[in-house]
């Protein structure tokens, strides 16, 4: 009778529409208030290079949330910093940056990824095998990874100096699009496709939707969790690589504010913290919206407090838009 209505799709489109609208609105408002310099190539590229590190951490948090079981990853920035620091300490011992900068850059990236895999695996094992709650496990590993970073770097930053391939990776644009931003979009697209169209992705959503039913249907909860948190670790290490490339420096306490921002990005993308739902395209749009708002406020000399206030307002507006109480109105259980 009444049961054939597309509640699910209605919600999804609303969230996507909201995020697209917000992006457009912020852009228009910024141009109107701050001037056309907001949309000149330099600023667009400048905003574009600031996005990947936040976006990758946001995707990591989103994946953890989708997997359910109170999933979250608080260790993202710690892994990012640790990757950069370990790479910055080890690679100069093997490769000379002056003689072979390209090899240096690749080895640097490789080391970062390895650290990301290891850290992600540790998170995954703690959660899937040792059965720790994700918030506690990743809080603990976050502090552990930061601790290692501090000790290994003696608490001070490590300067990389100017290494052309790395610097290009962090800043250069090809056909107007910064390389690191293009990489971010590629990664987001790959993960989005994997979530939607591969057995792994579908199983992850189902796991997050009902862990018990997933077990009865033969899914391996521990396997899925392990892969999820490892991917999150890898994404964090790529963020670390991008940070190192952008700043030419790595430090253990860089970006401590990113933990909460990543969570904000995921929640404002409509990812359900209880699991089973979330779209990567929305995570990307959420990140760009927050970045543009932030840059717009910087253009206007508006204090960062108002930026945080505006982000909060945006989140509330988003939650209002997605709030669905249609079930009782449409179905009225008979």
């Amino acid at each position: 009778m009444l049961k054939g209505l597309l509640v699910g799709n209605v919600v999804v489109d609303r969230q996507l529409n909201f995020l697209v609208s917000v992006n457009v609105l912020v852009l228009v408002a910024a141009v109107a208030i701050a001037g056309t310099s907001f949309v000149n190539v330099y600023n667009l590229q400048s905003m574009a290079v600031q996005i990947p590190e936040l976006g990758l951490l946001g995707i990591g948090v989103a994946l953890a949330m989708i997997a359910g079981n109170g999933g979250i990853d608080l260790s993202g920035i710690a892994v990012a910093n640790l990757s950069g620091i370990v790479a910055a300490l080890l690679v100069p011992m093997w490769v000379s940056a002056d003689d072979s900068p390209l090899i240096f850059a690749f080895v640097f990236g490789g080391v970062c990824l390895c650290i990301g895999i290891v850290c992600g695996l540790i998170n995954g094992l703690l959660i899937s095998r040792a059965g720790l709650t994700p918030i506690i496990a990743t809080l603990g590993t976050s502090m552990a990874y930061s601790g290692i970073s501090v000790v290994v770097s003696n608490g001070s930053g490590i300067r990389l100096g100017y290494i052309e391939p790395l610097d290009d990776f962090g800043h250069m644009a090809v056909l107007g699009v910064p390389i690191c931003f293009a990489l971010f979009i590629a990664i987001a697209a790959a993960i989005g496709v994997a979530l939607r169209f591969t057995p792994f992705g579908v199983r992850l959503y189902l796991l997050g939707s009902n862990a018990k039913a997933a077990r009865y249907a033969g899914f391996s909860q521990s396997g899925l969790q392990l892969v999820t948190y490892t991917i999150s670790g890898i994404l964090a290490s790529i963020a670390g690589l991008i940070i190192a490339a952008r700043i030419s420096s790595v430090k253990w306490d860089y970006g401590t504010s990113y933990v909460l921002i990543a969570i904000l990005i995921a929640v404002m993308a409509g990812v359900r913290p209880s699991g089973g739902y979330g779209r990567i395209v929305c995570v990307v749009l959420s990140t760009t919206a927050l970045q543009m708002l932030s840059s717009m406020f910087n253009f206007l000399d508006i204090s960062n407090f108002f930026r945080d206030f505006a982000w909060g307002l945006l989140l509330l507006a988003f939650l209002q838009i997605s709030r669905i109480d249609l079930r009782s109105r449409l179905f009225g259980k008979s």
Partner: peptide, 13 residues
């Protein structure tokens, strides 16, 4: 409800 279905997911899934 608690052991079988993924309630908010499509019938097909």
């Amino acid at each position: 409800l608690s052991e079988g279905l993924f309630l908010e997911k499509p019938v097909r899934s």
